[in-house]
Computed example of a mutant assay.
Amino acid sequence: MPGHRSITQAEKLAAAKLGGAPIRAERMAAVANIYRAASAVRQHLENSVLRGADLTWTAFVVLWVVWIWGESETRHVAEEAGISKGTLTGVSRTLEKRGLVTRAAHPTDGRLVLLSLTEEGEALMQRLFPAFNDEEGFVTAQLTEEECRSVADGLRRVVLQVEEQGEERRLALLDGAAPAPRRSGRRPQR
């Protein structure tokens, strides 16, 4: 791809830039490659199988979570999808307008909202997932079945490390302080 910067080239440039700084190059490469692989896979799937269904990655993941778990509280869907509740609100409203999900008040707690697939949403996932899985096969084609199991296991352990010890680590790094509020990238006008 013209103008495309290779991952190998980036790793060499980073090593040169850091010079003799004491870094864990293998750990840096692992984290950088997790991010780059996730981005490449997401972009490929959005531009191939999901585009035909007019879905973003996030919308597909929300549909997937509700398809697998069944009717669920929005807070659980957001957590499983790895998105904020605010993002889920926008995505679920769009999916609801398209007739793919329904949003309903929780029967015993009116503050909670439940999401479920409509018949049309169920039919879409039944049609779409086999094509999605074919593309999962495409993007992992250079790996053997054993390598796929090994990568999946290693990534599960990365997720578990963050889930089980991430909060404790964050507190230690910040001396128990709350993290600074997220910024939108905009700075106040002077």
Rank of each mutant, 00 (worst) to 15 (best):
R111K: 13
F129H: 04
E119F: 05
T74L: 15
Q126K: 15
R75F: 11
L128T: 05
M125E: 00
T56N: 03
L63F: 09
T74S: 14
A105P: 08
S92T: 04
L128S: 07
G82V: 06
T58S: 05
L115C: 03
H106L: 11
P107C: 09
A104T: 15
M125T: 03
R127P: 06
L117V: 05
L117E: 05
A59D: 01
E119T: 04
A78Q: 01
E119G: 06
L128D: 03
P107A: 08
T87N: 13
F129E: 02
L128M: 12
V77T: 04
H106R: 14
V66M: 09
T56L: 11
T102P: 12
E122D: 15
H76K: 13
Q126I: 15
T74P: 06
W69C: 15
H106V: 11
T74N: 15
V66E: 00
D54A: 14
A105M: 07
L63G: 03
S84C: 02
V77K: 03
G70H: 05
E79Y: 09
T108L: 14
W67G: 08
L112N: 11
T108G: 12
R75K: 13
G99I: 04
E119I: 08
L95A: 02
L117M: 05
G86Y: 12
T56R: 06
V113M: 04
W67E: 01
L124S: 02
T58Q: 08
T94I: 10
A105E: 13
T56F: 12
A105H: 13
H106D: 13
G121P: 07
A123N: 07
S84L: 00
T87M: 10
W67L: 10
R75T: 12
E71K: 01
A123C: 11
L114C: 07
R98Y: 11
S92W: 04
E79C: 13
T56D: 02
D54Y: 15
G70Y: 01
V91K: 01
T102R: 10
I68N: 14
E122V: 08
V77N: 00
A104N: 12
A81Y: 06
G110W: 12
A81L: 12
L95D: 00
E71P: 02
R111D: 12
S116N: 14
V91A: 01
D109G: 00
W69H: 14
L115F: 08
T118M: 01
V113K: 01
R93P: 04
I83N: 03
S116I: 04
L95M: 04
K85Y: 12
T87A: 04
G110T: 07
L112M: 09
D109M: 09
V77F: 00
S92C: 11
A104Q: 07
G70D: 09
L114T: 14
